[in-house]
Design a protein around this nucleic acid. Structure first.
Lengths: 343, 343
DNA sequence: GCCAACCACGTTAACGTTAACGTATTCGGA
DNA sequence: TCCGAATACGTTAACGTTAACGTGGTTGGC
């Protein structure tokens, strides 16, 4: 006796192209052509078939289509995580554009782990995607070899590099760090610190630190101190990192991003320090959070949405047999803010 | 003459199960069984085939497999957006669990638009996914009809309902609003307002408002005022919404979530109001942001990660022919905070 | 009035995999 | 010594679609 709790759901009403063809009294090929909007079908037949297909609830089988066409309309996307507005912005920019061209995105996250990125590649390739998109330009050697060999279009986003695998759309984080820090150094700050992820975790941190360090080296300031911090969330990383800094040793603290900077801001406030009178605080990215702060955060705006859109456009061009520029570097915009001041 | 800029990438080294079979001197079926770990192959043959497949760089074709098995290892996931830690948390909870069972997730966003959710369904079904997961329990009538008829497992997450389509895992937002507001009302507050999305956009807002309103009605307080607010980002919504409230008309303001509440907090501060001395501020969800505020935000913690994990586990059970409970309601935890006080 | 071109469709053979069923070989037991 | 069962494979026929290549009928030009 069957369990009473066994849930019986409606049986599949499978309808293939053949069923539609039989109902319409034409061949399968005519249905295929009609539904895909391909030449060789009279307008009358096309509308008749479309109506029949709709009535029958026909849904094309993407797997069969991908098999016959030898690749699918899926695009694999690898991001470090989704707990960051940066990646949500980039993703949204890409998704819209790709979507309107009939592609679907399959996302996976790596948590900045190169091994997981390689794993992603292997699992994604199974679906014979139309293209692969990945974050940053630093990859495990194995993965890089695979990506170089694959016939698929590959897009690296967010970072830029001189040696792209295929296409690359991003911004120059070192140049952004440099521009941001030059602005701060010009105000008179000379004892800088950086709070962010430990070395080797996020390649963007390395680039930003390099840029910031250079700006201060150029004016003969104290060497940039790097304070590594870890934690469950960016806010805590910023707060803990700030608290770990030796008191009074620095006149300005750069943070890896705006969330971290906000954590630092709260820690400074808790320590009874005035920003910017006692210490300067500088973020990165210009996230929405910074737009409601009573004292606007000094930061630099990264064109995330635009990176996503342009990456998607270049990718579509590539899929259509064109040759978009291999590397596209988008400019960042300095937001002076009020968490640093002339000293 | 071909364009110099034409990028030539490595040609496809297509290797199918047949190539592996030929190289190993066995039939395709043996390779298929060996690689999938299915009985009927000797251990010696299995390791030999595995080695050959690896050397040849063989990658199984998921589309062909899905076609032969009549459904794929993809799971379609519909979320309102990704600019919200809530959905990132839920997604991360599900992803890990599904992933380790060999499933990949295909995400799409709807921006709270029922029409886009229907569109998602139609585009997703093309891939013959193993299951569908969608946010909330309110859907367009068309979509609901489709979902009821489909033989696929369907999971509704985040909200709960008495009439699930199939499975449902979430928390009771009305009960959470009630618990949260009872705590606030018990402190003596009697003139409440709510700032959040306009009516009809986010069903969770309706539920929370209902709960909050009831708590105050129960103590004979002033009727809950609802202030609709829109904007590019949650922080701005909160700030603009707070500013739009008639001055002095309310003693406590509930916000739709913590991001919005933070915007309101900043607006209150900008208006020279002390929180909680001049006005109470209450959030929802307990996002990470609230963990670094100098004065902890009064809010209620929603078990997002857990919802994702349990939803994934129930879904896997369902896919394995078991019958997990149709509806699972997870409890929320009141965080008293310090942005309200006894008055 | 003939032929070329074109239009609107049809046929055939993949695409790569797996479910279902078939078949040698070995082995233990009566 | 023979048989049934288990083991380790192999064969066949889908799964649903599309690319490539037909084919019959109409049209237009000279």
């Amino acid at each position: 006796m069957e369990s009473e709790r066994e849930i019986q759901r409606a049986p599949s009403r499978r309808s293939s192209i053949r069923h539609v063809a039989d109902a319409a009294g034409v061949s399968m090929m005519t249905v295929s052509r009609a539904l895909r909007g391909i030449d060789g079908v009279s307008e009358a037949t096309r509308t008749r078939i479309a109506a029949i297909a709709r009535d029958m609830g026909y849904i094309p089988n993407g797997n069969a289509r991908a098999l016959a066409e030898t690749n699918s309309k899926l695009i694999g996307l690898s991001l470090p995580n989704l707990f960051n507005d940066v990646f949500a912005d980039i993703l949204e920019g890409m998704r819209r554009t790709l979507h309107s061209a009939g592609y679907s995105t399959v996302i996976d996250t790596t948590d900045y782990d190169p091994a997981r990125e390689l794993d992603w590649f292997e699992r994604m390739t199974i679906w014979r995607p139309a293209a692969l998109v990945l974050t940053g330009c630093a990859h495990a050697e194995d993965l890089r070899r695979h990506l170089t060999r694959t016939p698929l279009p590959v897009v690296e986003i967010w970072d830029v590099t001189d040696t792209p695998i295929d296409l690359c759309v991003g911004c120059d984080h070192q140049a952004a760090g440099l521009a941001l820090a030059r602005h701060v150094a010009a105000l008179g700050y000379r004892r800088p610190a950086f709070v962010g992820p430990p070395e080797g975790l996020d390649p963007r941190a390395e680039a930003r630190v390099a840029g910031i360090g250079q700006a201060f080296a150029d004016v003969g300031a104290q060497t940039l101190h790097r304070e590594p911090a870890k934690g469950d969330h960016a806010y805590g990383v910023g707060a803990r990192g700030f608290e770990a800094l030796p008191k009074g040793a620095f006149d300005v603290v750069f943070f890896h991003n705006d969330n971290t900077a906000f954590g630092g801001l709260m820690a400074a406030q808790a320590a009874g320090l005035d920003v910017p009178d006692d210490i300067g605080i500088v973020g990165f990215n210009r996230l929405d959070l910074t737009r409601v702060l009573p004292r606007p955060l000094t930061t630099i705006e990264t064109p995330r949405r635009q990176i996503g859109e342009i990456a998607a456009r270049h990718l579509l061009a590539r899929l259509n047999g064109l040759s978009p520029p291999p590397v596209t570097t988008l400019p960042c915009t300095l937001i002076p803010g009020e968490t640093v001041r002339a000293i």
